[in-house]
Design a protein around this nucleic acid. Structure first.
Lengths: 216, 216
DNA sequence: ATTCACATGTGCAACATTTCACAATGTCCT
DNA sequence: AGGACATTGTGAAATGTTGCACATGTGAAT
């Protein structure tokens, strides 16, 4: 293939998922992995793995498999996670501060360089990581001066859209939204939603769907 | 249709999404909504809305639209969110405690009734909500005695699978996993993953993909 | 009563994604 | 050097999902 014709969104998501076991394998002594084993550890079909990778090139060796470190490096290159990213967080409530403290961000090169809130009681406070909470009004100037590329929204749903608008006005092209609401944005700005209340409702649906308990 | 033949997973997810604006509309004075308006506020196609609903029945009135309160009630019935659910949280780190405190849970009928951790320093501590942190070893007995139906995993990735196994051994049939790893489970147990590092990587991919800035 | 405007419900076609199956191609062993 | 073996890369089929377009039904106005 080699042509980045039209890569399905699901493929991108899976590439990221593939990288998790690869990172673990890299730390252990494993040098090689087959599409079958990688697929199994991610719960997908082996052909799927190969097809996903085929969108971007030929990274394996026939009859042998994939070199773990090469494959991981290629995936990181594709996803552009082989570099550092600067992000800001808007809404420093329970969830927001937990995310700022979350090690998974920094470990993967996502650096929170600013935190905003509109609550006067919070503004000026210093977070455990050393970051000072700024008023939301400063978003536009701060995004520019700090060269922030990704905005994370952890406000209540009512204010999520206006925050998103502010971020976009500041030139942000990528938003990670934790508020349980559909944030509207033009094509040029990518929005990813993390709504665990939806996931809970899916679980509830599945739980209720299988009430047929075989009686002993 | 009327037959719950084979409802796509995406449909369930969208039903949950539809309920968000409906809740807001219900609080305001709006009584009626068309598939077109509902679709727009959720960023989907109007036909999609109708098709999703058609899997479960005919809830609208032709020429008129949908009664907001009726539709919301039906969706809640479908998703089984018209009742309370009991859940436990395993791993009381930053994220875990933020989730326990998160209002979105209780507001929607998801009650955290137990919290577990394996860190001796944390065991016995009382959370702001009044819950005492129990050792992970007690999961099996507690799940049974407290009739817990959903397990939430917020441990580091290394321990996520063993925690999941423990939960399943205790009879749990639904798991919400926040650890950035693919948790393996038999068919009978539904697992939903919330991995925001994957979302960040998707954002990074999209950001890097559009570097063609039109020069003025 | 009849007609008009409107919005649902749905068959069907278009599109997208996943899986299969096998040719291509590399490694290793004799 | 050559054959056996393993595993990739990929065309094509199967499967799943989305969107169009229109028939169907409803309410309101004349």
């Amino acid at each position: 293939m080699k042509k980045t014709s039209k890569v399905p969104d699901a493929t991108i998501e899976r590439l990221a998922r593939y990288s998790r076991p690869l990172e673990i394998l890299l730390k252990s002594d494993t040098r090689l992995i087959s599409s079958e084993k990688l697929a199994k550890s991610c719960g997908v079909n082996p052909a799927q793995v190969r097809k996903d990778l085929a969108y971007f090139g030929e990274f394996g060796v026939r009859g042998v498999g994939y070199d773990v470190s090469v494959l991981l490096a290629e995936i990181k290159k594709i996803l552009a996670t082989d570099r550092e990213w600067r992000l800001c967080i808007v809404g420093v409530g329970n969830l927001g501060s937990a995310l700022v403290a979350n090690e998974n961000f920094g470990k993967r090169g996502y650096n929170v360089v600013a935190a905003f809130d509109s609550d006067p009681k919070k503004i000026g406070a210093i977070l455990p990581c050393g970051l000072k909470i700024e008023p939301s009004k400063k978003i536009i100037t701060a995004v520019t001066s700090l060269e922030i590329e990704i905005g994370v929204i952890t406000t209540p749903p009512q204010t999520a859209q206006s925050v998103a608008d502010l971020l976009m006005e500041a030139g942000i092209k990528a938003i990670l939204n934790f508020a349980p609401i559909q944030v509207k944005a033009p094509e040029c700005c990518t929005v990813e939603n993390v709504d665990f209340t939806i996931k809970l409702e899916k679980l509830a649906y599945h739980l209720a769907k299988v009430p047929l308990e075989p009686k002993p």
